[in-house]
Design a protein around this nucleic acid. Structure first.
Lengths: 343, 343
DNA sequence: CTGAAAGCGCTAACAC
DNA sequence: GTGTTAGCGCTTTCAG
């Protein structure tokens, strides 16, 4: 390592026969400094390859200019689009982005929260793990007045002092189920992730409600809890096809699971939508190109990220007690061929 | 904001009738401190809700315990899997992860590099923008001895003092093209991104070479440069179908583009692979479920992230001049139905 | 094994 | 407009 001592504002000050404070101000375009002086300072800084020491400046000002994001995983087209737009918003306002993954593990989530806290993020955006039932591990943020915005997976009853951004999952679950019913489905499987997870739990509620309203069988056998990924189809297809009475509709908690299931069903000669109608969730590109094209719910990750980040920044700006709000984004049922039966 | 003054090691020291230095050591399990004392210190710290001030500690020790990652975008199944595995490796070693997106913009990349530098990341992992021809904006890292690892998009001739991790894109391009030729294709289109981008440029080289070796027409009309995303298919389909002599094979630079193109081709009644054989790149899940299933190249993002991160950590550990290396990961041609013609 | 003291580099009162 | 001064909270010699 080339251990050339760092250039500090003192070095610049010396060369310019100025005081360190003037240099400090000059570097930040402080209005009380003469234009000319500012120029000289900044030129000299550039010439000397000055690099401001963020630690010292942070220590002094007690600000980190950093926002934290914690989410289950990056590898998800939905979540990566959320982070992506968060990053964009945050950077534009001059903040840095510290990120970590919780892998749906509650202990890991806690650890991450602690780390972000220690790094003194000025705000936190978090997508909770399914297991997270109480939000007490976020208390340390609340106590210090550091704003936290929950997005996507949000406790239904969060009057907990946190701003939340999500969609109305119950309504969406209801919409999908009702649509399947409208297409003549009588026995509908709900293939969801962990139902303790608000997202999947709420969708399940909408599902139950739609069934109830239409006097359809609501049987717990029809509700399958499984991790929703590319393997899901292979894991559950036999279970579904071997049910005493074969289902004629499937509502999957995300497109990935829906598509992988379609893949397996087609392999076994099941016709979609005639034998079984299928709907997914998320409106990934995949849902458009799969055959038949997949009915799904539009679930705008970029929008969610943008709004979550902006809400956080707004709270930060007003530096105080903006009433916390629960923001619900619009979702939209996109009916495609996988569930469209000839009337 | 509840402005309760922060608890410092001085407060702990006072309560315990110890000196700040002892507390500082105790908190970090310094061996020179009595077990008993350490316990007392840590208990008191917990009781008082002590939060270590990273700024002060960083300032003092001149370390940030942070690694930076800069890449074009998160929204890409390949890149998100890369970041994901980087994050995992990095966190496990107690580092934080600072991330930013360059959106394929060179100025933005430079800005990000500067920001990461100012934040004193201890190492940088970067996936360069296509436009980046000289690496001089990374000089400031080199000069300070901060290790930089380039991944994925890597200058072919990078003897530039940086460790690189990538695949052999030229070979991969060659493999794909040769495969198409082996299936009887005579006029093969290469649909790549910006060919100044090493990734796409190198694949193009492999493509040219394979054509040359087999005495096939290598016509610049057959090389299409276009952003590769879900829109690509719609953008280029007519251009392809209206070529004077219609191509019978297409090698697309990524699965997304390949799939979107297949979608458009099928709409127009083109039979795949009989009329036109198609191959993509990346082995996304989509490539497996699309019909016909898509021939592609396995391009392991998680592996790449892991190796890049580990290389960086290794350099960091040895704190010095480990010879930089150019690591090439294995790729694999996965032949599927989109290019398999009956012999 | 523990303490005293100095200083990392910057910023913000407060002076002039 | 610019300079003086006093820390921010921590770590680390150096003493004992």
């Amino acid at each position: 390592m080339s251990e050339k001592k760092e250039v500090t504002i003192y070095d610049i000050a010396e060369k310019l026969k100025l005081s360190p404070s003037t240099v400090s101000r000059g570097l930040r375009n402080h209005p009380a400094i003469r234009k000319k002086t500012i120029e000289r300072i900044q030129e000299m800084a550039a010439a000397m390859n000055y690099q401001q020491n963020t630690f010292a400046s942070n220590l002094r000002s007690n600000r980190s200019k950093t926002i934290g994001v914690i989410l289950p995983r990056f590898e998800s087209s939905f979540l990566s689009s959320v982070v992506s737009s968060i990053e964009k918003v945050i950077r534009n306002k001059g903040y840095n982005l510290l990120v970590s993954q919780s892998y749906d593990s509650n202990p890991l989530e806690k650890e991450n929260i602690q780390t972000h806290f220690n790094n003194r993020v000025e705000g936190l955006l978090i997508n909770l793990t399914p297991e997270t039932n109480d939000l007490s591990h976020l208390d340390l943020f609340l106590k210090k007045g550091i704003p936290v915005v929950l997005f996507d997976r949000v406790k239904s009853q969060s009057g907990s002092g946190f701003t939340t951004v999500s969609i109305d999952n119950k309504q969406a679950g209801y919409d999908v189920t009702r649509h399947l019913i409208s297409q003549g489905c009588k026995r509908i499987v709900y293939l969801g992730g962990n139902t303790t997870c608000p997202v999947f739990g709420d969708r399940a509620k909408g599902y139950w409600q739609a069934l109830a309203e239409h006097g359809l069988e609501a049987n717990s056998e029809l509700v399958i809890e499984e991790h929703l990924n590319t393997e899901t189809g292979a894991l559950v297809v036999d279970r579904i096809l071997n049910m005493k009475k074969r289902p004629d509709g499937i509502f999957a908690g995300n497109d990935m699971a829906a598509v992988s299931l379609m893949f397996e069903l087609k392999k076994r000669g099941v016709r979609i939508p005639d034998d079984i109608a299928i709907a997914g969730f998320n409106d990934t590109y995949m849902s458009r190109i799969v055959e038949p094209s997949l009915t799904t719910v539009k679930y705008p990750g970029d929008e969610m990220g943008k709004i979550a980040a902006n809400s956080l920044l707004e709270i930060l700006d007003h530096e105080s007690h903006v009433a916390t709000q629960n923001i619900l984004l619009k979702h939209e049922l996109l009916v495609r061929n996988s569930s469209l039966r000839n009337s």
